[in-house]
Design a protein around this nucleic acid. Structure first.
Length: 828
DNA sequence: TCGAAAGCCATTTTT
DNA sequence: TGGCTTTCGA
């Protein structure tokens, strides 16, 4: 800490420029504060100023602050902003995510529950791989149990602080699937314990269990953290809520005694207790989008009941978006009933209208986005100021294809994550095998990667030997010579074992007999030693498989990640590096310097803001997603997701959709999202409305010409829709029929159409029926009649199945290309 | 023991 | 559609 200004004088500049409720939140002193912060209402500002105020006024040392954020990036930013306000480095402040904070505590206390402090953190893919093996061993797949399904059940249980035992107690043993799930759960837990490993949910749950089992451990943290601040409180689950409750308990004298803590003067109250920490939570129930992950909206709704004496501050003034964007957001969210009344407003009126666009295909939509990004760029928007959001990761494909073609610089956040790639996992497995010798799975993974002739048979022999001797697999490797294997094999095993031992010496240092010590080397050196000793990278480079080149690049990328880590954390150990790598979130990858457009899911977008935002794929079945239809509250959560997306935009908002969407290689007709209708029509300027894209609404010819131009440049569409056809797809014209759809539509869409059958002039609507010509067989020479173009002769049919394109020479309007499945045509 | 081919399967959101 | 597993052949 650098010098502090005199106490009392702190307030002035920290309160400067804050509105009254923001001020109140910064100045509040008391047991508990709930800040209901609408989107863009300056809650980060409130949090950072509040922390800085506490420190500057000397009400708290930095080390007494615990601030929980949703992502590591948010944590980093918050730390920077606090330090900026304080004018110096604030050491000892804990600003981190729930998971990072818990790992820190758990590593410190690991031995109390029998783990090494370098325990492994399993990500969801690791959990699933382990579950898959257990399910296969037990032939539980015969009961329809899938790794993903069981993982979800276990995750849910852990978020409710249930362990395998209590899960088994609550399971209905008459139901074989539940009984089996309980068995799998307990074996899964056993295996994690054996490997000294925890999954994501364990990190939180075990910390809670630790605090409950060891009050003297809890006392240390309860005493230390005097001010606890939690951001995005609406997305906390039960385990996280329980953790906060544990941390905000008063410390009883007995616990102090057991912990051997001698309270300082003024630290305790009349009963000799240390009073509970002051708690500040910030959240917005309208932005709760993680119910599927166990987030419990009641945590925020019932805050005042949970923490008696709590104050509530409402932040409703938005400093981010234009009035038009806010009006749209308000109009949408108002459709969620059963929410506390709250309305965002801004002092800045007007702004540009929201732009709408309906593409003929997802590629047409993507092309519009790409063109519009270039236009914005020409207008002075930096690429980094622009973001494209979508509901599902699968939607990136079309966008990426077009962006590459159009030379739009972009980066995809999340999705197929870097750390989930096989080669990256391989290399990490080497590091984990070094850090945690009990982690058999990592060791098994690298046993024969790269190939050294240690196949499943040898692996089984090693495992059997380890089991027989009661030693770890890692130890068994050191005794390779005793297994009576061939000389080549024995040498390979001994070589790997020696390599790991050398790396371990590098990672942890070494005591010398002389009494001196060799200090540990940074993680990047450990990594490089392993890569050289294992020949892993060299073999990838030497491979003639072109994909291996990309894999080698990824491995090199990991090396540079390790190098960067070393620069940022000169004291960082191998375990620190592995922890950081395990806990990166999608939004953490966002690099503001990169100068490229950000592509991400709506979930990842939470907490971020951009000058211009594209919300894509606004179609029924995608947003709201069809999977959400069956879940209670699913529709409301989808609407909040839409709301979150809208409110990320500062100046420009684009709402786009496509009339057809290819899924699993099949083209489906899409309907505009019902949420689009919730935005007042006068706020949206449709560049091409759903009605126009449909051929309805009187401007169809113009719309179609536009589409022809766009589609002609759309290589993705050309590839997927008219395989091999030169020059792309050309215009794909279709329009809905007046008669009812001939089947194939999903139930939800059916209901949606019926629900809106009354409203006629809404620009977002599609006609009341979608044609499905699925079975219509056409051949060159056939005469057809089209509703708009009249009669014509089929020149050729290209494509297959639902993507068949009829090239028709119309008597009146010339050559047109039509998507047979949905074009309003009939053979005559 | 390995590589290629063929079938199979799944597709919501994530710390 | 493509990613993944299984299977088959060498």
């Amino acid at each position: 800490m650098t010098e502090l200004p005199p106490a009392g004088a702190w307030a002035e500049d920290l309160l400067d420029g804050l509105n009254p409720p923001q001020r109140a939140a910064v100045e509040y002193r008391g047991p508990a504060l709930l800040v209901v912060a609408g989107a863009g209402s300056g809650k980060t500002r409130v949090l950072t100023h509040r922390i800085a105020g506490l420190i500057r006024s000397r009400e708290a040392w930095p080390s007494q602050i615990l601030a929980i954020t949703f992502t590591n990036k948010a944590a980093r930013e918050m730390r920077e902003r606090v330090e900026q306000l304080l004018g110096g480095v604030a050491d000892g402040m804990w600003i981190s995510t729930f998971h990072s904070a818990c790992v820190r505590i758990l590593r410190r206390e690991a031995e109390r529950f029998g783990f090494v402090s370098s325990f492994t953190i399993y990500d969801s893919a690791d959990s699933r791989a382990l579950l898959k093996r257990i399910i296969k061993d037990r032939e539980a797949d015969a009961y329809g149990l899938t790794p993903g399904g069981v993982a979800a059940v276990i995750s849910k249980a852990k978020n409710e602080l249930m362990d395998a035992e209590s899960f088994a107690r609550n399971a209905n043993s008459a139901d074989p699937r539940q009984a089996l799930t309980a068995e799998i759960f307990s074996e899964y837990s056993r295996e994690l314990n054996r490997a000294h490993a925890m999954d994501f949910d364990d990190l939180i749950a075990q910390t809670v269990h630790l605090f409950r089992a060891f009050p003297e451990v809890a006392a240390v943290y309860q005493r230390r953290f005097r001010h606890i601040l939690v951001d995005e409180y609406q997305d906390t689950n039960h385990a996280q809520y329980a953790l906060i409750r544990e941390l905000t308990r008063p410390v009883e004298p007995e616990a102090l005694a057991r912990a051997g803590i001698e309270p300082r003067g003024g630290e305790t109250d009349a009963q000799g207790r240390i009073p509970p920490a002051s708690l500040t939570v910030v959240g917005d129930s309208d932005q709760s989008i993680y119910a599927f992950r166990g987030a419990d909206i009641r945590n925020i709704v019932e805050f005042e009941r949970d923490f008696p004496g709590a104050s509530v501050v409402l932040l409703e003034q938005n400093y981010r978006s234009t009035q038009n964007i806010l009006s749209a957001a308000n109009a949408v969210i108002e459709n969620n009933f059963d929410r506390p009344q709250k309305k965002l407003w801004t002092a800045v009126a007007g702004g540009e209208l929201i732009t709408g666009y309906t593409g003929y295909s997802q590629h047409d939509e993507a092309q519009f986005v790409a063109d519009e990004i270039e236009r914005l760029h020409g207008e002075g928007f930096d690429y980094r100021d622009i973001a494209v959001f979508y509901r599902t990761n699968a939607q990136t494909r079309a966008l990426e294809e077009i962006f590459i073609r159009s030379a739009v610089p972009y980066r995809v956040l999340g999705g197929t994550k870097f750390y989930e790639r096989a080669e990256v996992k391989d290399v990490l497995a080497y590091l984990i095998a070094v850090a945690n010798p009990f982690d058999e799975y990592s060791l098994r993974r690298i046993l024969n990667t790269p190939k050294r002739g240690i196949g499943p048979a040898t692996e089984a022999q090693l495992a059997a030997y380890a089991a027989g001797e009661g030693i770890s697999l890692r130890e068994a490797l050191r005794h390779a010579a005793r297994l009576g294997l061939g000389p080549k094999l024995t040498a390979a095993i001994a070589g790997l074992s020696a390599l790991l031992d050398e790396a371990s010496e590098l990672a942890f240092g070494k005591q010398l007999p002389s009494g001196g010590a060799v200090p540990p080397r940074p993680p990047v050196e450990v990594l490089q030693h392993l890569l050289e000793g294992s020949d892993y990278l060299a073999q990838l480079r030497a491979s003639r498989d072109p994909q291996d080149e990309a894999r080698a690049e990824n491995v090199e990328e990991l090396v540079s990640v390790a190098r960067d880590f070393g620069r940022a954390n000169p004291e960082g150990t191998l375990v620190d590096f592995l922890t950081e790598v395990s806990l990166v979130a999608a939004a953490d990858e966002l690099d503001d310097e990169s100068g490229s457009v950000a592509l991400m899911t709506l979930h990842t977008a939470k907490g971020l803001e951009f000058r211009a935002v594209f919300l894509t794929g606004l179609e029924e079945g995608l947003l709201p997603h069809q999977m959400s239809a069956g879940e209670p509250g699913g529709l409301a959560e989808e609407r909040r997701l839409f709301y979150v997306g809208i409110t990320r935009a500062r100046e420009r908002l684009y709402l786009t959709l496509a009339m057809t969407r290819a899924q699993y290689g099949d083209v489906d007709v899409a309907l505009p999202s019902r949420f689009l209708q919730e935005i007042p029509a006068e706020l949206i300027a449709w560049r091409q409305s759903p009605a126009e894209a449909n051929g309805r609404g009187g401007t169809s010819s113009r719309a179609l010409n536009a589409s022809s131009r766009q589609l002609g440049r759309s290589p993705g569409f050309a590839r997927s829709a008219v395989s091999g056809g030169p020059g792309g797809a050309g215009s794909v014209a279709f329009r809905p029929e007046a008669e009812p759809a001939s089947g194939g539509m999903r139930d939800s869409l059916q209901r949606f159409r019926e629900a809106r059958a009354g409203g006629a002039s809404w620009p977002n609507t599609v006609g009341s029926g979608i044609r499905d010509n699925g079975e219509l067989e056409l051949a060159a020479g056939d005469r057809v009649r089209h509703e708009d173009y009249g009669e014509g002769r089929v020149a050729a049919v290209t494509g297959v199945g639902s993507k068949r394109i009829a090239h028709v020479d119309f008597d009146g309007v010339g050559r047109k290309k039509l998507l047979v499945k949905i074009a309003p045509i009939s053979r005559i």
